[in-house]
Simulated assay, not measured.
Amino acid sequence: MDKATIKEKVEAMISAPSCCAELKTAGERYLKAIGTPEEKDEAKKLLDEIKMDVCTIDQVIELFTSAKGEELFGKEKAAAIASHAKEVKAKGGVYCDCPACAPGVELMDAAADILK
């Protein structure tokens, strides 16, 4: 993955409403470090944060079928997201496909390019 695409994926990930604060901060720090001596260090930190925050599809299903998921998102929305996640899993999906996790997965897959 080239640097321009990496930058686009990071920007998409951190602008997603589903992006957690820690991942957003790591992404912003990486973007600011591009082209500086700190870039590689911030890239490592970003990848570590992505690995901690990107959810597996099983984690998504577990949350959105739980009482906590219903409490946080409402019964109808939790059920809709759980249903979607089950469809993703049935098609072989391993990770959450939300607007934050999907580019995060692509960035994990491109770790070698990011660390260049």
Score class of each variant (00 low, 15 high):
86 K>M: 15
45 K>L: 13
4 A>K: 15
27 G>A: 02
31 L>D: 00
108 M>D: 03
93 G>E: 06
39 E>L: 04
59 Q>F: 03
99 P>R: 12
3 K>R: 14
116 K>V: 02
53 D>M: 10
76 E>F: 09
77 K>I: 13
73 F>T: 05
38 E>L: 11
28 E>M: 07
12 A>F: 05
108 M>H: 04
86 K>Q: 14
46 L>V: 01
10 V>G: 01
92 G>M: 09
76 E>P: 07
27 G>E: 05
115 L>F: 02
97 D>T: 15
11 E>C: 05
25 T>F: 13
62 E>Q: 09
95 Y>V: 08
51 K>F: 06
15 S>T: 13
115 L>S: 01
22 E>N: 07
103 P>S: 10
29 R>H: 12
58 D>M: 08
93 G>R: 02
115 L>G: 00
102 A>H: 15
18 S>A: 10
70 E>P: 04
100 A>N: 10
113 D>V: 04
20 C>Y: 08
79 A>C: 08
46 L>S: 03
31 L>P: 08
84 H>K: 15
95 Y>W: 01
14 I>N: 05
51 K>V: 05
114 I>F: 04
89 K>V: 11
29 R>S: 14
112 A>Q: 07
63 L>W: 13
66 S>T: 03
93 G>D: 01
99 P>D: 15
75 K>I: 10
49 E>T: 12
111 A>Y: 04
70 E>H: 13
102 A>D: 15
34 I>Y: 06
23 L>N: 06
39 E>S: 11
13 M>K: 08
72 L>H: 05
30 Y>P: 08
116 K>D: 06
57 I>Q: 09
54 V>P: 09
115 L>C: 03
75 K>N: 09
35 G>C: 09
75 K>Q: 05
109 D>Q: 15
94 V>S: 12
19 C>V: 12
68 K>D: 10
98 C>V: 11
34 I>G: 06
50 I>D: 01
25 T>N: 08
15 S>H: 14
9 K>E: 10
40 K>L: 09
56 T>Y: 01
63 L>A: 05
16 A>C: 11
114 I>A: 03
60 V>A: 11
13 M>T: 04
12 A>H: 09
115 L>N: 02
67 A>R: 04
42 E>G: 03
61 I>Q: 09
60 V>H: 02
83 S>A: 14
45 K>V: 06
62 E>W: 09
38 E>T: 08
35 G>K: 02
86 K>R: 15
20 C>S: 12
74 G>I: 04
83 S>R: 06
27 G>F: 10
40 K>T: 13
84 H>S: 15
86 K>V: 07
28 E>F: 02
104 G>L: 04
85 A>H: 02
21 A>L: 02
35 G>E: 05
79 A>I: 09
3 K>P: 07
38 E>W: 12
26 A>N: 00
49 E>H: 04
86 K>H: 01
3 K>F: 12
16 A>D: 01
31 L>Y: 00
58 D>T: 09
111 A>P: 00
16 A>F: 01
48 D>R: 14
30 Y>D: 04
83 S>V: 07
74 G>P: 01
66 S>Q: 00
15 S>I: 06
46 L>H: 05
60 V>P: 12
102 A>C: 10
102 A>P: 03
